[in-house]
Amino acid sequence: MTAVTTKRPRQALSGRRLREWLIFLAFVAPNVALIVVFTYRPLLQNIYYSTLNWTLGSKFATPVGLGNYRDFFTSGEAREVLTTTAIFTVATVGLTLALGLGVALALNRKLPGAGFAQATVFAPYILSGYGVGLAWLYIFDPNIGALSAILRDVGLNSPEWINSPRWTLTMVIIVYVWKNLGYAAVIYLAGLQAVPGDVLEAADLDGAGPVRRFFTVTLPLLSPTTFFLLVTTILNSLQAFDLLIAMDKLGRGARTLIFDAYLTGFKEQSQAGYSAMLSTVLFAILVVITLIQLIVVERRVHYR
């Protein structure tokens, strides 16, 4: 202690600083401990499992190094699953943001019943994904579903929503967007209400019409909101799961990366090691996407 004090006198902890440090530690330690035990430990454990050939539930496993990764990336499965993941993510994020903004613009008026309309739009977001999936499955069912009855009435045949992989993916995207639209709408609505009236007024005085005002004033001022929504909806889409398991039982249409991890780990052949590898790949993708968003996209965001 003396030696430290003589060598680095400036960094010696005064009694007060030590006390502050201990208080800080007392406040953060429980949280840090919880995060380490329940988040980072399983994360590392999962990376370790991804190097095993392990059947879920079995007491024994064989180390295979990077074998699971090699199998995934060389078998053609990677291309298929990552393409589905990309289609699902781009479609759901794009549609959720675009339609969410549209709904927010519609709701951003002082009309009677606006509160009720907002609550109605937001409600699906808080419903259980699995329940929503099951309910919509019966609407989409090409044989006995409500949608097929409506289509029949107007002389159309229902697409094979459940048995044709392409239609299954379309169905899941539609329902996912329906469920999450309210979230984007509510956040956008808050953003719209924060757009200062004086700036819009100034644009108006300068002769800008409503469309011009929207694209040159409102939309740029909403960019922090859009950025926030982009990050959160991409993360959510990449982890969408409950809806998929309810609507695509065999995983033939909407087999995204996380759904593939579930199916291989818990359903098909219970390959927990392989499934852990898929989760690790997903983790890496999430980290990369988040970094890109933070570094590149945020530069283009206009904060007031």
């Binding site: 959160t232 983790f283 980290v287």
Partner: peptide, 22 residues
Amino acid sequence: LGLSALGISAAALSACGGGPST
């Protein structure tokens, strides 16, 4: 955002408690 991304993805990774013997 950074922490939530890490947190959420870590949660996605969180497998079960006990592991196998090799």
